[in-house]
Nucleic acid binder design. Structure first.
Length: 274
DNA sequence: TTAAATTCCTGTAAGC
DNA sequence: TGCTTACAGGAATTTA
């Protein structure tokens, strides 16, 4: 599933392909994928606009167009962006095809349809409550151990659920939350009620390290994740706990514990994480 | 404000 | 073999 490293990989690859290009056509096959504005307006207003820049914020891809317009893509669980030529074979569940002025296509496919596309000015989208308030970027210099400590200290929900809360920290999902907790030696199921500065510092380092490794390996291909060209990432080979419940801990050899937190599978080592 | 539960969705795999 | 069921989970929404 696409988390920060996966979205970063896609955004980095997509930037040189899109910036300077004009959107020439929009083929919207599954209108509910567009959450703002009304699908007819999306199809009417998007063509003709030139892409000025492209950024990632949390798990969102922000494509800035002329006239202050913003095209926002969130991949949800199974969303894929693929760069193709018009004749290329089409994946099932292709819901949107953007034609570009150089004859190529940007296609959005998403079997589970948890993903979404938004179009509007930033002001528009905020007013319509389509752009949530996101916490800091974990890889920004402004995100310090002190800041992480401030945001977690005193909270009563299990640590893992707080790490998944995008308003506390943007971009971390189930995979990297489990991996960071393991690397930091901290149990994901305990509230950080009186989290020490030391442990917050370890968690801060582990989060950044996990995300940076993920980016270096072009993401984790667990279910459907592939890059713009359909290639898988390599980070899944380095995962120490995610998806490994019951298998031996890579550090101590004891079986890893699988529990559910907030409906999400959570794996940790009872010996190595305290 | 915070925390927990519910909902959306379909491909895959396990179980009978 | 073929059917049913459970599971995967990001985030918006609802409830307490």
């Amino acid at each position: 599933m696409p988390e920060l490293p996966e979205v970063e990989t896609i955004a980095t690859d997509l930037r040189p392909l899109l910036v300077g290009r004009r959107v020439s056509s929009v083929d919207l096959r599954f209108p509910t994928i567009v959450r703002h504005p009304e699908p007819e307006l999306f199809v009417r207003d998007l063509p003709g606009h030139v892409v000025h820049s492209l950024d990632r914020r949390g798990k969102y891809i922000l494509i800035r167009l002329g006239d202050g317009l913003l095209l926002v893509v969130h991949l949800g669980m199974t969303g894929q962006l693929l760069h193709k030529l018009p004749g290329d074979a089409q994946r099932p569940h292709t819901h949107v095809i953007l034609g570009l002025d150089n004859g190529t296509e940007l296609r959005y496919s998403d079997p589970r349809r948890f993903g979404r596309l938004l179009l509007g000015t930033e002001e528009d989208l905020v007013r319509a409550r389509k752009l949530p308030r996101l916490g800091p970027e974990p890889l920004d210099a402004a995100f310090t151990p002190r800041e992480l400590h401030r945001r977690l200290y005193g909270r009563r929900a299990p640590l893992k659920l707080l790490l998944l809360d995008q308003s506390i920290l943007a971009g971390v999902g189930n995979i990297y939350a489990d991996e960071a907790c393991f690397a930091a030696g901290i149990r994901p199921d305990r509230p950080p009620l009186r989290l020490s500065r030391l442990r917050a510092g370890r968690l801060h380092g582990a989060l950044r390290e996990a995300l940076l490794r993920g980016i270096a390996n072009r993401g984790s291909s667990i279910d459907d994740y592939v890059d713009l060209y359909g290639a898988q990432g390599r980070q899944q080979e380095e995962l120490k706990v995610y998806g490994r419940g019951g298998r031996p801990c890579s550090t101590c050899g004891r079986p890893l514990t699988l529990i559910r937190l907030g409906g999400r599978a959570t794996v940790f080592c009872r010996r190595c994480q305290r």
